[in-house]
Design a protein around this nucleic acid. Structure first.
Lengths: 182, 182
DNA sequence: ACAGGCATGTAAATAGTTACATGATTCG
DNA sequence: CGAATCATGTAACTATTTACATGCCTGT
């Protein structure tokens, strides 16, 4: 058997516990892991078929009224595969941030426009932080320690980033006195 | 004219200032933006051809001895395109971190193995932080404020992340007394 | 002589997004 | 009734990595 894709493991992890439909998996991803690992229908549905054929998940019809619906449950093989993957040291780390890329080249802009990049980044991050903070009470209620920890990583990261933007903006406007208000 | 890819702008930004060969662009990316925006030869060389045909960069032969070599310089049109892109609010933000994904599903593992994920993440981040710190003196010498700011973002982020791993590990091992040593 | 770095490029595979098509159900 | 949501799926495109092929030049 070939290597599974990261999306395959996202699916395995998501259907562990309660079985889910493709639609529900997408919703779960959007509500939780989206901030550090996304998945689209174009990945999910074909992957569900592959995982099903490989025997790592099993689909069963579960229509809601006249609306056809297939929910997938993890199999023993699937659980084994998931756990084996979890035990391997993680190897994908990428902070894809167009704002940092633009800032890197901001020398090509007049100073006020360059600073504007930082302002835009900060505004965006503050909005994200608010959304994540709003999700925290729900995650707390659920009581699952790992998703909660991951959410808090997202919150802390986003707030740290917004703060970094603010500090860097100040430094660019007043470059000689970095240490004044420590 | 169609929209340009992010890689196209990376190239435009990299050849602004001194002209560079494809090989040098790759080296520059690996030495600087790699931590938040990478590019491979498979993207760079075809993109150089496209940008050249679009008149945004201009290549000129510049062999080193008998070794053929083409360096590309940005054109006025290219500079305009780059600046227009820099002025638009950034729109790609993604923290792709397999470790967080694994941690999210770590419920499937016995507790010590779950904690091991955090330890592996931390070890990795500490190694990255060391590499980035080693690059700081050079960036300081160069005196370009934007690349330096971006590098420092990388350092701060990496160190924050390593610290978060440590704190979260401690909390998972001793969940009831989160506030003891504030 | 040989290793390693400079240099250009392509092919194939994998990954991932976007847009669309289809149709049912629910809620206002 | 119409909009939103549930639900499944595909096609086309874009992005990205990996591996390979080729060949020159420099230092040991």
């Amino acid at each position: 058997m070939e290597e599974l894709s990261a999306t395959a493991y996202v699916i395995l992890g998501m259907v562990r516990g309660e079985p889910k439909s493709g639609y529900e998996i997408k919703a779960a991803v959007d509500g939780t892991t989206r901030f550090f690992w996304a998945a689209s229908y174009g990945q999910i549905y074909p992957e569900l078929k592959r995982l099903s054929e490989a025997g790592l998940i099993a689909g069963s019809d579960s229509p809601t009224g006249g609306r056809r619906r297939t929910v997938y449950a993890i199999t023993a093989d699937g659980e084994e595969e998931l756990v084996a993957w979890l035990r391997q040291p993680p190897s994908t780390y990428e902070l894809r941030e167009e704002g940092l890329l633009k800032l890197f080249f901001a020398d090509a802009l007049p100073r006020p426009d360059a600073v504007e990049i930082l302002r835009a980044m900060r505004v965006h991050r503050l909005a994200v932080a608010a959304r994540l903070r709003a999700m925290e009470p729900l995650a707390l209620e659920r009581g699952d320690p790992f998703p909660l920890a991951v959410l808090r990583a997202g919150i802390e990261f986003t707030e740290w980033f917004a703060d970094w933007c603010e500090r860097t903006e100040a430094q660019l406007l007043d470059p000689d006195h970095e240490k004044r208000s420590s």
